[in-house]
């Protein structure tokens, strides 16, 4: 049996609360299983590397699978305040069921030496600066990701 360390490469391209979880859960778990992990944050996924994650929300709009306390016509989901309400409800559920917060998972990922890479092109596109992001991350482009992904055992696009 070969002893080479397994590798996992993930692209995180979404910036909503629900879609923020899979990359961080898989990255931290893969690291715990002894894998080398890189997560490349591009487009809306870049939001997950910002210092505060308070702006990460979930929307009931165009999200028919989202459990609601009562049946709700689609247009009601578009009313101002519904997004904040849905986000607050989801965060309550997360806490109640002992699911880690995004902030905690992100910290755990960094502690486990998961390499978090911010897409430089997206930073320029959305006019961010490096001071918008947490410490301890790397910056790179498509070639940076592909170099690692080309040798990865698992590659995921989220």
């Amino acid at each position: 049996m070969e002893n080479r360390q397994k590798k996992m490469a993930i692209i995180a391209s979404k910036g909503t609360l629900d879609m923020a979880y899979p990359p961080f859960i898989l990255a931290t778990t893969a690291a715990a299983l002894g894998m080398e992990v890189q997560v490349f944050f591009t487009f809306y996924g870049l939001q997950l590397l910002r210092k505060s994650l308070k702006h990460i929300k979930i929307s009931p709009l165009a999200n028919p699978a989202m459990p609601m306390p009562m049946p709700m016509p689609v247009l009601v989901s578009a009313i101002p305040g519904m997004q904040s309400m849905a986000t607050a409800m989801m965060k309550q559920k997360i806490k109640k069921h002992g699911v880690a917060s995004l902030e905690d998972l992100r910290t755990l990922a960094l502690e486990a030496d998961v390499r978090l890479i911010a897409c430089q092109m997206t930073i320029d596109l959305f006019e961010f600066t490096k001071s918008d992001f947490i410490e301890g991350i790397d910056y790179g482009g498509a070639a940076t990701f592909l170099e690692f992904a080309s040798e990865a055992d698992i590659t995921l696009f989220v």
């Binding site: 859960i25 931290t28 715990a32 699911v99 486990a112």
Partner: peptide, 12 residues
């Protein structure tokens, strides 16, 4: 009281 993946992360 902890959900996935915390039991595994804490075990590690």
């Amino acid at each position: 009281g902890l959900s996935c993946p915390l039991p595994i992360l804490k075990t590690k």
